[in-house]
Design a protein around this nucleic acid. Structure first.
Lengths: 226, 226
DNA sequence: ACGTAGGTGTCAACACTGTTGACAACGCCG
DNA sequence: CGGCGTTGTCAACAGTGTTGACACCTACGT
């Protein structure tokens, strides 16, 4: 017999609230995450949440921090390139799948623990391949732009969790039917346009990784010469 | 003596409404763009807007389409590299400055006229440097990911219109004060972290342009050999 | 053991939001 | 001139986040 069945009000804490919030966001998306919905999920009054969080924004921040705390395990035995690739893919997917929480997270200052941890591991990977600290700092930001940018873009483009295959095909058909006098190239290139987002991301990611290795090699040369 | 001063209701049309909406978004940001605010701006009842747009979403779409219709003039005499660079910068700034409208625009299918026009010019630039149509299609998407992604990221990071110089400095100080046992690299690299977003964007953009020229050159080789 | 103080859940209410249906005035066309 | 469609206005509805008053329950000090 639970407390609420005995007529006693439910007892909440930040954890229970965040659990419920994560459950709602995971199954119905961020727009469904309203205070009243949380209250219903917990069997408590919506305003009870305000006893544990100053406001919704604070709750969302903590929720985002929790969802972004997952990190991939990178086997140090695998080649650096593969680890870097895996790392960048994992980071991108975080933003792509958790959709609007990424937006929320990108929109505030960097003092969340999970974000600091990500920065640290990014720097570790970059210095490991031979980059100097200033160069690693620069590339760490280049990677963040790429990863977060693409993740947000994919998420916003309605990717949510499964690839929008038929929507790409529809756009391709739309391009193919454009008038030849205003958009000849788009019309002609239609079959090749709208490639799978994953393929594009893979291409750009490998481009960046190659660039990193080139710079690292150049820095190594310089050090060796001196 | 205006009509409303004579007691007559104001006469609206899509243009006037979009003008008011653009004015509000430009000066106070998208969150301030409410139907009631538009009504106040026009001196009319908020619900009058519904005589001209099915709902707010439709109005926003048209507004986004209008704001994204501006294109840079590229002098064909300037070197290809510079034109490409200018093009990518202009495109990124569109998303960065117009903030959430970019989000809105990225979130829907590609059938807006202004977006088709952008795609066409992108393909024109890429084929001009020697890329085959399939390669141009791929790179056009790579560029879109890069440009839109970074633009959205910058916008969401609270860039709005002027560079957040002091906020970068604050984060740098925060990094420098991290405990050495959990985030040693971040702590040590603090002075080099948080580079100006524009510098990072410039670096990545040039990286992409160099990659495009390399692929174009390789394709040229291949054609020449055959 | 009692009394009190603080923390917590509940309820009603406020200020917002987008949106709809009824009503009335306007202008245009037959 | 008569009617009718278009458009602006008003009241209202279902939502949203948030606050203050009230009541309870728990834990602590004497």
């Amino acid at each position: 017999m639970t407390p609420e069945e005995r007529g006693q009000p439910v007892r909440l804490d930040r954890e229970r609230i965040l659990d419920a919030a994560a459950e709602i966001v995971g199954s119905e998306g961020l727009p469904a995450l309203t205070m009243r919905r949380i209250g219903a999920e917990l069997g408590a009054d919506p305003t009870a949440v305000y006893r544990h969080f100053r406001n919704k924004q604070e709750m969302l921040t903590e929720l985002a921090n929790r969802l972004f705390a997952t990190e991939p395990e990178l086997d140090p035995a695998t080649p650096w390139e593969d680890r870097m690739r895996a790392w960048m893919w994992h980071a991108m997917r975080r933003y792509r799948n958790h959709l609007d929480l990424g937006l929320l997270l990108a929109g505030q200052s960097d003092d969340l623990p999970s974000l600091v941890r990500i920065r640290e591991r990014s720097l570790a990977l970059l210095t490991e391949v031979g980059l100097s600290l200033p160069q690693a700092a620069l590339f760490s930001q280049v990677i963040e732009n790429h990863v977060v940018g693409c993740g947000l873009f994919f998420a916003v483009s309605g990717w949510h969790s499964c690839p929008p295959h038929e929507s790409l095909e529809a756009t391709r058909r739309f391009y193919a039917m454009l008038p030849a006098d205003t958009a000849p190239l788009t019309r002609e290139a239609a079959p090749h346009l709208c490639p799978e987002p994953d393929d594009v991301y893979a291409y750009t990611t490998d481009l960046l990784i190659a660039a990193i290795e080139r710079v690292a090699a150049a820095e190594g040369e310089e050090v060796a010469r001196a």
